[in-house]
Simulated scan of single mutants.
Amino acid sequence: MEAASELRKVVDAYAILTDEKKILEQMDLFIPDTRFTIYIDDHLISDIKGIEQLQQEFTTHVNEVKRYFTINGQHQVTVHGDTAEGIVFSQMKVIREEHGVDILSDYSIQYHDLYIHQNGKWLIKERKEYMIMVEARPLQA
């Protein structure tokens, strides 16, 4: 049960660091040769390999976003010694400016994760992000 609690802290730290745009700290949650894939409607739209590429992708994204707000819901994990699998249900709101108008995008996401316990801490080995629902609209004042 202790591993499940520690893994929940990892996925919550990921969300908090996203909201705070702290990419370097966020990279500390991943192994160096991590893999991060993103799917919309089961179609692969991004396949990122390694922490250097992940940091570049996240930096590009952060520079396009005014604000993030993330809420994590259910987190189911299965632990196998020093490895684990998990599913995280997450809701993310993103504000971007397009043609002088703030656009609010609302993402319903499932993360399918593989974790590994190294040097006394849990890290994300692989993260598959499935965007289940996406809605975008002008932000109302």
Rank of each mutant, 00 (worst) to 15 (best):
E64I: 08
D106T: 10
M92V: 09
Q76F: 14
N72V: 05
D102C: 07
Y68V: 05
Q74C: 08
Y68N: 12
S105E: 05
F89P: 04
D106W: 14
F69K: 00
I95E: 05
E85K: 04
I109D: 00
I87L: 08
G100Y: 08
V94R: 10
G81F: 11
R67C: 09
Q110R: 15
Y107P: 01
E97T: 10
V101G: 06
M92Y: 02
K66C: 05
F69A: 06
H80I: 03
I71N: 13
T70Q: 03
V79T: 09
F69E: 00
I95A: 03
T83R: 09
G100M: 07
Q76C: 12
R96D: 01
E85D: 13
D106S: 05
T78S: 14
V77L: 06
T70D: 01
M92A: 09
G73F: 14
G86K: 00
S90V: 03
E97L: 06
G73R: 11
K66L: 15
T70R: 06
S105T: 12
E98L: 13
R67G: 08
N72L: 11
V88P: 00
S90F: 00
R67S: 13
Q76H: 09
I71W: 07
D102S: 03
L104C: 07
Q110C: 13
S105L: 04
L104D: 00
I71P: 00
S108W: 08
R96M: 04
F89W: 13
H99Q: 13
H99T: 04
Q91D: 13
N63D: 15
M92S: 07
Y68P: 03
G86L: 01
K93S: 12
K66W: 05
H75L: 06
V101H: 07
Q91H: 15
D82C: 05
Q76E: 10
Y68W: 14
I109Y: 03
K66V: 08
Q91F: 12
H99C: 04
Q76S: 15
E98C: 09
L104A: 01
Q91S: 13
D82S: 11
G73K: 12
G100V: 01
R67W: 12
V65L: 04
G81T: 02
K93I: 03
G86W: 00
E98Q: 15
T78N: 14
